[in-house]
Amino acid sequence: MVAPIVQPGQTIYSDPINGLVQPHVQANVGSFSVPAGASTYTAVVFSSTLTGNTSSMWSVSQPTRLVAPTTGVYLVHGGIIWPATLATSDARGELRISGAGTPAPGTRVGTQRGSAGNMQAAASGATYLTAGQYLELYLNTQNASAIAAAVTLGITRISAT
């Protein structure tokens, strides 16, 4: 892309400027109930966005999905705050692309082995998404009862195709 040159008195339209900013979104939920049981992975339902510049990347009508508006490599960023009710149980997460049953290549969610309260696990990585594909965060715990975790997850395109 050629660097824009602006002349005095020239009208600057938003499309070229917006095109310089990579699409991104950061969604969150203050309290997400993770069901009990080691065999259950549940997609996190986000309640709102903290920041974002492309409205199509998260929607209340599909609250588990962070959608890639354009094809490229996306940086994954976010984390989980596990409560004290996790006690000595394990808790895990997986990032999955478009409903796949396996983790997305190039991504990682830290495993938490017990929590005294406010223990944090990071979600990170970079993965390739085509336009319209989406990323979801699935959580799992071996705890004997459901627990409530605070979760934030974002994606930012860092490279086009």
Rank of each mutant, 00 (worst) to 15 (best):
Y13A: 15
S14A: 15
I17H: 11
I17Q: 12
I17E: 15
N18L: 15
L20H: 12
V21A: 14
Q22W: 10
Q22S: 15
P23Q: 12
H24S: 15
V25T: 12
G30E: 05
S33Q: 11
S33V: 14
V34C: 15
V34N: 07
V34P: 07
P35Y: 09
A36P: 13
G37S: 01
G37W: 07
A38Q: 11
S39I: 13
S39Y: 05
T40N: 14
T40I: 12
Y41S: 09
Y41M: 06
T42A: 03
A43C: 03
A43E: 05
S47M: 04
T51I: 09
N53D: 03
S55N: 13
W58H: 05
W58E: 00
W58D: 02
V60E: 06
S61G: 09
S61A: 06
S61W: 07
S61R: 10
Q62R: 07
P63I: 08
T64K: 01
R65D: 09
R65L: 04
L66F: 09
L66K: 01
L66E: 02
V67T: 14
V67N: 01
A68R: 01
A68P: 12
P69T: 01
T70D: 12
T71K: 08
T71P: 02
G72W: 00
V73A: 07
Y74D: 00
L75A: 10
L75F: 07
L75M: 11
L75S: 07
V76A: 02
H77N: 14
P83V: 01
L86C: 05
D90S: 12
A91W: 00
E94K: 10
S98F: 14
A100M: 12
G101V: 07
P103D: 07
P105H: 05
T107P: 04
T107G: 05
R108I: 10
V109H: 07
T111E: 00
Q112H: 00
Q112N: 13
R113I: 10
R113V: 11
G114M: 10
G114E: 06
G117D: 09
N118I: 11
M119V: 11
Q120V: 14
A121S: 09
A122H: 03
A122N: 08
A122I: 10
A123P: 13
S124Q: 12
S124D: 02
A126N: 10
T127S: 00
Y128E: 02
L129A: 03
L129K: 10
L129T: 05
T130G: 09
G132E: 03
Y134D: 06
L135E: 01
E136G: 05
L137S: 00
L139W: 00
N140P: 05
N140T: 05
Q142M: 05
A144N: 09
A144L: 06
S145G: 11
A146S: 15
A148N: 15
A148E: 13
A148M: 01
A150Q: 11
A150D: 09
V151D: 02
V151L: 08
V151C: 08
T152N: 09
T152H: 10
L153R: 00
G154F: 04
